[in-house]
Design a protein around this nucleic acid. Sequence first.
RNA 1: CGGGGCGUGGCGCAGUUGGCUAGCGCGCAUGGUUUGGGACCAUGAGGCCCUGGGUUCAAGUCCCAGCGCCCCGACCA
Length: 414
Amino acid sequence: MRYSRMFGKTTKSAQADAESANAQFLTQGGFVDQEMAGVYTWLPLGLSVLRKVEQIVREEMNALGALEVFMPSLQPKEYWEKTNRWMGVDILFKLKSQTEKDYALGCTHEEVVTPLVQKFIQSYKEVPLAVYQINTKFRDELRAKSGVLRGREFRMKDMYSFHTSQEDLNEFYYRALQAYVKVFSRCGINVKVVQASGGIFTSNVSHEFQSITPAGEDTLIACESCTFGQNAEIATVKEGDVCPECRGKLVKTKGIEVGNIFDLGTKYTDAFEFNVNTAEGSSKRLLMGCYGIGTSRLVGAIVETFHDDKGIIWPESVAPFRVHLVALAGKDEKIIQEAERLYAEIQKAGIEVLFDDRDESAGKKFADADLIGLPLRIVISGRTLEKQSVEWKRRSETESQLVPLNELMAKLTA
RNA sequence: CGGGGCGUGGCGCAGUUGGCUAGCGCGCAUGGUUUGGGACCAUGAGGCCCUGGGUUCAAGUCCCAGCGCCCCGACCA
């Protein structure tokens, strides 16, 4: 992609009072655009990151054996009345059609997925079953805040599993927990698995996945060496204790909740009277689990974790491009030509590259590259070409090195 | 929903003892000079000063109401 043709550009300054790092850098870097409080457009650069995060989630859910579906956000009132959540959930957006019919805008999908699966599943032989989707959620939050961390419209992966026994549910629940840890680790995020209450979902067991960053909303007592953590408000362990799981050291820290999983029991299958036939010829109520990851929030959590005062430092796994090719050519046709040749060659090798082909000053290009935060910056200029080289610099490091032109592709594809 | 701050070209901001053609930086357009850390010169386009009501000879500026955004708190399946 040529940066000169990019839609959404960097700005030198951001609103002074919007202080969270993700709001500041995602906006300044041209990744997102705020439409209203808690509602954002994902611009090409940001959408690319969001898609990469969602693809990682998709791969890990598929590896669990879950099947992807796509459910409607516009949902009938009747289902929500069946579970007593039409009036019971204050964050539920409700709207009326021109014929005065009531609808909910989905804040979650138990009310859709339960009757959906019920329609197709009649036998114990057809479970366990897990379906998931990556969709937009709507929540009427009293206060949206912190950029994409707490929105009123946001992206979420939600998965629902169905089981005939608690043992079976437990087994899947545990595998899902491990898949979640893998998702976050692939995104570069240091996550703690925290036991939590189920809130309006269930009184059974649930776990939160907390991304560790000073910008977090929740205070945790967490292990330095493993994924153990507890919410500080209800913790039975304290700072300085030894981790009950790995004997590591427990410290006080802050976290952003990027995922949660719940044992729903029969709460929703009861509401919809969802039974399957058993081997013995009787019928049995199914058990459910549900598993959420806020994918747009996860992008925000990644920015909170990986930035410096100049901008974002994307982990390679979710960076919109791997290489930021910066040409310092001015009107020098020879340099332009060489930069174009390099751009074509990198693309041809299948490497995602953002080519800053603009006629801008070096300072501006460097500042933009730091802000956008691609993992690797390659500069080609009169100075480097004198030595038949390009400059190679990782965003996460301060030092750069010269790499001979004839060694560049080998180094890139190594 | 309680408290605080703010609302002025696309973006960031200045502009109160009420006063004359509403400013600055960035960005944008045209031309020229520049080119390794947010370059420079010249010219130019672009404004229901959040909305409604009020006070006044006169309102971006004062008063009332509403809406919006940010921050703290409460809330957060």
